[in-house]
Design a protein around this nucleic acid. Sequence first.
DNA 1: CGACCAATTTGATTCATATCAAAGGCATAC
DNA 2: GTATGCCTTTGATATGAATCAAATTGGTCG
Lengths: 251, 251
Amino acid sequence: MAQAIRLHQVKSPLKASCQQCSLSNLCLPLAVEDNDLERLEDIVQQGRIFNRGEHIFDQSTPFRSCFAVKSGSVKTSIITEGGEEQVTGFFMPGELIGLDSMSGEHYACTAKALERTSVCEFPVEKLEDLTGKIPGLQHHMYHLMSQEIQNSHQLTMLLSKNTAEERIAALLLSLSSRFQRRRMSGTNFSLPMPRNDIANFLGLAVETVSRVFTRFQNQGIIKARGREVELLDVEALQMVTRDFSRQGCQQ
Amino acid sequence: MAQAIRLHQVKSPLKASCQQCSLSNLCLPLAVEDNDLERLEDIVQQGRIFNRGEHIFDQSTPFRSCFAVKSGSVKTSIITEGGEEQVTGFFMPGELIGLDSMSGEHYACTAKALERTSVCEFPVEKLEDLTGKIPGLQHHMYHLMSQEIQNSHQLTMLLSKNTAEERIAALLLSLSSRFQRRRMSGTNFSLPMPRNDIANFLGLAVETVSRVFTRFQNQGIIKARGREVELLDVEALQMVTRDFSRQGCQQ
DNA sequence: CGACCAATTTGATTCATATCAAAGGCATAC
DNA sequence: GTATGCCTTTGATATGAATCAAATTGGTCG
């Protein structure tokens, strides 16, 4: 068995081993029984690397695959004909990109690596075959897509009802919980994206984002130096978000 | 064959006949071969009626089914603990409700009939079974959910970048194209929802919506009396929306 | 038919955030 | 080491839409 894997690796260095991946409890393998895992591994191409700023795909790329983030982080955004950008999401390890593109010939958004990032590629055609055969995996796909809709509705709500402070508090808490899921500190982390992208995502001007950060800092709620952030008073942040609670629980 | 159908109808008056439904080219049957259609009809419960204001489900209802609008129209919204409402969508005949709820035990939103409305019910458990067996149907479900994500992203964009006028123009055009899909007039229709819901959906105050309507009217772009709307200058509306183009092309 | 309640419209004022402008900080490259 | 450019911060001003207030319309029901 181990030999078989090695053999494949010789043939194709990208051959996946989801079993050994530390993200197997977050990513697609989560929904697959051990004895079916091999079938998933058969269709994955693992470990493509992108440097900061590189596109994983853009809106002119024919839609072929969904991508799971393995390490690093990714920003997705819609670029209009006029060149305006709307950031639609940030994706961290274990999260799946491309679900919004499963209709249409081309990707519905542009995905850009925010830092040096590695991704696993799932060709949709094969993935659809597989989900047809593994009910649990099909169910999980529905689950993930449904989550994605909910997340987007939460963002809609944030944009339509909440102040700048509330939006930013919500984003910080979302990031925090996603770091925690990966057994990393939920209070001490480094923002993968520039202020600019935060602003765009939250429908604010960069200046406003900056001002809110300093205001939070003056209130002793957070400590921020550049992208390094420390959440000093999570409760206070939760108070700020009021009833906008759990955006971004992607699983 | 006709007898068999009649027989079923005697047993259960809700037994579906998707074949005869005028929406079969918009709704789920669209993705199903003729010889599989019966299997879809087997799981559908057709024709439940709701009066204006009645809930099809709410956020405390255990999630069991998706619903296709057969006639009338439906508003979905998220109600927060604080009682605030965020309208997340309007659904017209042929469109499918509940895709955002396919994760979690309960519905992720509340669905309310905007007028006397009839819906077809698809129990998800059976639907998932069926999509596992009919690849085209599974594909279509992915397609619809993906569309829903895209629609929500378009709304996000609208809220974060566009003025009140642009948002309302976009909504009018979206409704227009959805009426046209049903072979109804795209320039002369009756809004199924009150100004209040439009405002909430678009992240505006009612007063603003009202003002924009009268402004458009003074400019000769539309004619509106109550919910009755006539689009006099579609081109002008399209100009107003700028590069926000095709929101709500749900198919 | 008239009365009541809800939905819509209109007007005056306020406010949060955008925009404009510019200075400081940080990292990369030469 | 210093220069270049980008990212971030800070300040002053402008503005679109919210809010507050009230009149008007419209539909429903006794």
